[in-house]
Design a protein around this nucleic acid. Structure first.
Lengths: 139, 139
DNA sequence: CTGCTTGCAAATCTTTTGCATTGAA
DNA sequence: TTCAATGCAAAAGATTTGCAAGCAG
């Protein structure tokens, strides 16, 4: 069992929730791939886990802070959230559709905090997407 | 006719597209409200414009850079884009669901540019959402 | 006129729900 | 054993498409 699946177990047990096979499978599917759409995730679990259970699991994981939904262009995508993966932002290539994670940038983070505070807003979380053309699509 | 509808006309004519009533209605519905979901937009045009035409119009407007889809929590919302409204970001309150626009912050913008450039990424656009609790929900 | 746009209706895709059954603790 | 969690199937909701009719240019 991988180390991160152990973390999943921990998160579930802490809430007295069962550690079931569907939950493990969905978690690993999320772990193995780039941010993915719901249909992609469903395809990844095809035959093994029922569609409805995947939806239910994603909702649960979101409540537990295990996954987060990103709006990438038009449709949302899913990825593991900060507790299971470093906090980061995304570069979306409008040409090839690729999504590249950006390494954390302390300066930027600090600046966003300050910005929120300036507006009496208690920031908990944020998302940033930069859209344009990736290095390899610039010919 | 309002000034901004004139801008819509201009944008359409420049592409040799018809200035039709559905397009005007959808445009004004977008102009009159906060960022809204597709069902909200449809409700706003209820009876006047057909659902399918609204979808088609939104796709067109997006291609023309007139509207943009935002990640607001879970579902996307639509709003007029930068050419028709000042560039800005959003504070989303997780408690009351309100979405507050942030005034443009030159320092932040510059930094995002720098960040993209550092990764050989030709940025065209970006979106930032900060989530947390707004001033009035902090009791 | 002429071809772009629309409305309508049906198809398709996505998400949610009720209920009987299964399985983790 | 017990209750939460699952699978299944059907419902509900969102989005797309084909086609005939309408309207802007």
């Amino acid at each position: 069992m991988s180390e991160t699946v152990a973390a999943l177990q921990h998160a579930l047990q802490q809430e007295r929730l069962s550690v079931t096979n569907p939950r493990r499978v969905v978690f690993q599917a999320l772990q193995d791939a780039e941010p993915q759409t719901m249909p992609q995730l469903i395809a990844r679990c095809r035959g093994v886990i029922n569609r409805a259970s995947i939806y239910r699991t994603v909702v649960l994981f979101e409540r537990l802070g295990i996954v987060q939904r990103l709006q990438i262009g038009w449709k949302y995508k899913l990825e593991l959230s900060n507790a299971f993966q470093h906090h980061h932002h995304h570069l979306t290539c409008l040409q090839c559709g690729g999504v590249t994670p950006l390494p954390e940038d302390a300066l930027l983070e600090k600046q966003l905090d300050r910005l929120a505070r300036r507006h009496d807003f208690a920031a908990q979380d944020h998302q940033l997407e930069i859209r344009g053309r990736c290095a390899s699509c610039q010919t």
